[in-house]
Amino acid sequence: MIEARGLFKRYPSRGGEPFTAVAGIDLDVRPGECFGLLGPNGAGKSTTMRMIGCVSRPTAGSLSILGLDAAVHGAAIRARIGVVPQDDALDSELTVAENFLVYGRYFGLGKRVIRERTTRLLEFAQLADKADQRVDTLSGGMRRRLAIARAMINEPVLVLLDEPTTGLDPQARHVLWERLFRLKREGVTLVLTTHYMDEAEQLCDRLVVIDGGQVVDAGTPRELIERHCTREVLELRYDSGDLADLAARVRGGLAQPTETGAAPSPGVQQALAVRERVEILPDRLLYYTDDGEAALADIHHRALSPATALVRRATLEDVFLALTGRTLVD
């Protein structure tokens, strides 16, 4: 579906060093899967998506989409994919049905075909009763579903979604996820960017973690968690005391104490297999362990009892922290 090798995007900046948004990314997206680009704001996700959508030319590297060279066949590729931009890009002055009409014409579709597909797609988007309403009367969640439905007007085999649920309330997010699952079940390949870990875990078969314009690691959510984390995470909150000092004392119980805070390179990280470790966050300690309850019992035993403690499953958020040394939420 998509094959990218050494993708670079540099933007010239006025009177300075050119800005490198994407710095050598390799991607392989297979037919029918949901593929995620995960990373913080400014990591290069959207720029990568724009290049895949053939609206931005790579500065260097090769990019093939649906077996076509993106540098040569941009228009043909755009004709066969669906794009859901971050800000919807709907025309808010037109009605829902008119947005389909306009968009369908961009793909060379006739009025009758557009009308027939619009009915079907509005049902899919659960907006069947909104066809004649102006877009600016719809809620954020409805608009996003509309944008996804509109992107399906050309019956694409590949749909690109740039942060599909950013800015939506939890209920709207779940409705949207469910719709995306349906698309996937029908055989549509999905590529999405997100900075939500739960979204990536929910939706993506495979994903790449991007930071600073580069792929830091790739795999299934489970693989990434297993590679970089323990099975469980014990979150420890203390009312008083220096967290760094407490971390050192908690760490004393680990077989192999490791430095935290700095971000070791993925290679080094894998080599060291630093799975059991303690991370210091501004408000709490994260104790990575395969058995959270046992670790907590041990901590109590060593008279390091926290104010509150929570044992949870490791998530992609923990992977990201392990890979980059920072949390995503900042």
């Binding site: 004709a79 019956e155 085999v157």
Partner: peptide
């Protein structure tokens, strides 16, 4: 099973 794209092209 997979959406067709045959009728979609550059206008």
């Amino acid at each position: 099973p997979v959406p067709a794209t045959a009728d979609t092209s550059v206008p």
